[in-house]
Amino acid sequence: MDTFTDPGTATALAAPFYTPPLLHAVHHFGPRTLDFSRQVALMAIVNRTPDSFYDGGATFALDAAVAASLGAVQAGADWVDIGGVPFSPGPAMSAREEGDRVVPVIAALSAASDVIISVDTFLPEVAARSIAAGAHVINDTTGLSNPEIASVVAESGAHLVITHSLAAPRTVYPRPHYDDVVTEVAAFLAHRVELALSLGVPAEKIIIDPGHDLNKNTLHTLEITRRFNEIAALGFPALAAVSNKDFIGETLDQPKYERLEGSLATGVICILGGARILRMHNVASASSAIRMTEAVLGWRAPAHLIHNMRDINEPGRPGRPSTAGTT
């Protein structure tokens, strides 16, 4: 074959990979539209917390958080997820303080870019302020621990991410046990989706997340990754938040800053299992991994078609070494 296969006819080529039965493949986020039947969204992470899991507070200052958000867009992010409170156990934070952390970042990013913006919160008051400031998505990592947040989303027309977690917000959940973690997580998500629907959130505004590492040990999370197709089979776009997490560190015996390769491998495995959104810290590297996966699946054309396309191979593009004749 001498030319790129039309992505519209490439479904058969991708048959070895899981194609989730999406109830609604096309989703509208403000000015942006994503077709999850043929693309994967890259969600960048920006936390305005002094004790964030990955960067230890590097983006706590307002100007640093805004700069990191804009930098993520420049590096290839389709989406920026902004948080003001860690998931990890700790003291409760008032809705006012949390909102004062995230709302200025949302407002600045919304004014400067058309990127999809989500806020990581479980408080209805913060959700309402965030949406008013320009957020398109509420990312509730507590699985509707406060159902009122779904009502806020329903009234606004925003999207809602429903995540599996078992603990009350910011509390310890020691030694989590599951008889079959994937079956139980899928059942939890299905139940919470029904709750969101009953509170007025349209099906085309719902995204699900099995919650890698959230109230799960490493074996649980590896099982979810291996059987991600069972989560995606629920019919809603599935998010995989795998970046630099402890299950990667424990599996590979690596500290946080050495987990990039494991994060990328895990992310690609989830895509092949039906994930359509990846939440990642290392945006440029994740963008390359996602776009390459999309090309293999037949959804994206190569940027160039030069190698072995003519009688004599041409030298590499300016600034790049030639690969002519390599094996």
Rank of each mutant, 00 (worst) to 15 (best):
A275N: 05
A233Y: 03
F188E: 00
S113V: 10
S263I: 02
P237C: 11
G274A: 09
A135V: 04
G84P: 09
S110N: 11
F17D: 03
L214A: 14
H164K: 01
H136Q: 14
R38V: 11
R291P: 04
R48V: 14
L195R: 01
P21L: 04
R300S: 13
Q254H: 14
E204M: 05
V46G: 12
P176N: 14
L34T: 09
D51I: 00
L62T: 01
V182D: 06
F17N: 03
I116L: 15
H191F: 09
E294I: 03
D35Q: 02
G262I: 06
A158G: 08
I224V: 15
T266H: 04
R310S: 10
G249W: 07
A44W: 11
V26A: 12
S52D: 15
P86Y: 13
M292W: 07
H27I: 00
G235W: 11
R175M: 07
F29T: 02
L144P: 01
G99M: 02
I116C: 15
L239C: 10
I138E: 04
I231P: 08
G267S: 05
K245E: 14
R279M: 09
G211M: 03
A150E: 04
A12G: 13
W79I: 05
Y257G: 02
H281R: 12
V268Y: 11
R96S: 14
F122M: 08
S130A: 14
G134I: 01
M292T: 07
P321L: 13
A58D: 12
M309Q: 13
L219M: 09
M292E: 05
K216L: 05
R48A: 15
D179K: 00
A112V: 08
V161L: 13
A154S: 15
G273E: 07
K245L: 12
L199H: 06
G211T: 02
S151L: 12
G134L: 00
G8T: 03
A203W: 00
V105D: 11
A295P: 06
A284V: 11
V80F: 08
L23D: 03
N47Y: 12
G211W: 03
T121A: 12
V66I: 14
D114H: 07
A111Q: 07
T183L: 09
D246P: 01
R96M: 07
L219W: 12
E314K: 02
V161F: 14
V80K: 03
H24G: 00
H212N: 04
A25E: 09
V296K: 00
T221Y: 08
G273T: 05
A289K: 03
S69L: 07
L160S: 03
P321S: 07
S88Q: 15
T3N: 13
A232C: 08
I231Y: 09
E98Q: 13
V40F: 13
Y257H: 12
T49R: 08
H159Y: 03
S288C: 03
R300G: 13
G211Y: 04
T251E: 02
L260N: 07
S198C: 05
G84W: 06
V161C: 15
L160N: 04
S165D: 07
W299F: 11
V46N: 13
A135E: 11
V73S: 11
D140F: 08
P104I: 06
V242L: 15
N139K: 06
T183S: 09
H220I: 00
L272G: 04
P147W: 15
V73A: 10
